[in-house]
Simulated scan of single mutants.
Amino acid sequence: MSSVLVALIVFLSLFGGAMLGMWVARRLAEHHLAKETQDAVKLGVGMVVAVSSLILGLMTASVKGNFDATSRDVQQFATYLITLDGTLRDYGPPAEPARAALLGFTRHLLAASWQITDPLADGRPKVVLDKPDPWAQVAFSGVIKAIRALAPGTPLEVDLKAEALERGRTLSVLRWTVIEESVTTVPPIFTAVLIVWLTLIFMSFGLFAPVNRVSVVAFMLCAVCLAGAIFLILEMSSPFDGLIYVSPASMEHALAQMMKPA
């Protein structure tokens, strides 16, 4: 279910709950709305509000932490791409096939994760979820094979080949780290329970609120704000999918550096 649809459901549930509370209040006997009843209901709802606030805070911290970690991993990945390309440049012409394979691998990652057909063009890219891609794995294997195929003839070339292989292994680990940790799944049952809690809270608000335009507009705005919060949480849970995503700037910079003439 998309984050926009979930946010719409949250808004309708919360605003509908407030309106339902107002509707029920007008049909209850006066003694059911006495001050003692209001105090008892507010006491119970206050506990639910506290727990809901805690849950929302934990969800936000979890997805935001994962989003920031993924962003750092992408930046680190781009850094290792640049340093590996620099090592291959230092090796000289025999390493050109490996550099070409690395360039193709980088182009593919940009196209697969951010759908950037021209990585150096201006404009905001459309983003799709980064999933394990067999072609990219084959492409990266081609980079490693090209490095291993180098036949160093001097001590310097031996050191450069060893350095390139080490950075290649680090890139492989980082790539799978980004893939495996790029999505923080928010369990649907977890979201459903939270929506039920928030709906009950809004029903209690509407139960004792005066029926006028100001109250209705206030409840509508509050429902929009909470729906927006849920929307942001779900959007950040997928760093390579949706409206909020990890910036490809570091990868574009890496590709630009790799495309510079030797």
Rank of each mutant, 00 (worst) to 15 (best):
R169M: 13
I147H: 00
T106Y: 04
F105V: 06
A69D: 14
L171F: 01
I82K: 02
I82G: 00
F77D: 11
P155G: 12
H108P: 10
A69P: 02
V193Y: 15
A151K: 11
T70I: 13
E166Y: 09
T184L: 15
T184D: 14
L102F: 00
I179V: 12
L160R: 02
Q76F: 09
W114F: 12
R124P: 01
A100R: 15
S141Y: 01
P155N: 03
T170Y: 07
T117Q: 15
V143C: 06
V143E: 00
R148T: 13
I179D: 04
L174K: 14
V183F: 05
A139V: 02
W114G: 06
P125G: 01
S71I: 09
R167D: 03
T185G: 01
A162I: 03
W135T: 15
F105G: 08
V186L: 09
L156D: 03
V128W: 03
E181Q: 09
T79G: 15
W114P: 11
R167H: 03
K126F: 10
Q115D: 13
P155F: 07
W135F: 15
K131Y: 06
L109C: 12
E166V: 12
D159N: 10
Y91T: 05
P187S: 02
A162E: 07
Q115W: 11
A136I: 09
A69T: 12
Q115S: 15
T83Y: 02
Y91A: 01
T191R: 04
E180T: 06
Y80V: 08
L171S: 05
Q137Y: 11
Y91K: 02
T184H: 13
S172Y: 07
G168A: 12
Q137R: 12
W176G: 07
T79R: 11
H108D: 13
A98F: 00
S113R: 07
G168M: 09
F190G: 11
G123S: 10
L84R: 08
L102D: 00
P94Y: 10
G92V: 01
D122S: 14
R89Q: 11
A164D: 02
L160P: 00
S71D: 10
V173R: 07
P134L: 11
T83K: 05
P97E: 08
G86A: 07
P93D: 08
V183Y: 07
E181G: 14
S172F: 11
G153I: 04
R148H: 10
T117K: 14
L156M: 13
R124M: 13
V143H: 02
E181C: 01
E157Q: 06
L102T: 02
K126M: 15
L102Q: 06
D122N: 11
I147Y: 00
L103Y: 09
A69I: 04
D85G: 04
V143G: 05
T191E: 01
Q76M: 12
A164Q: 09
L129W: 12
F77P: 09
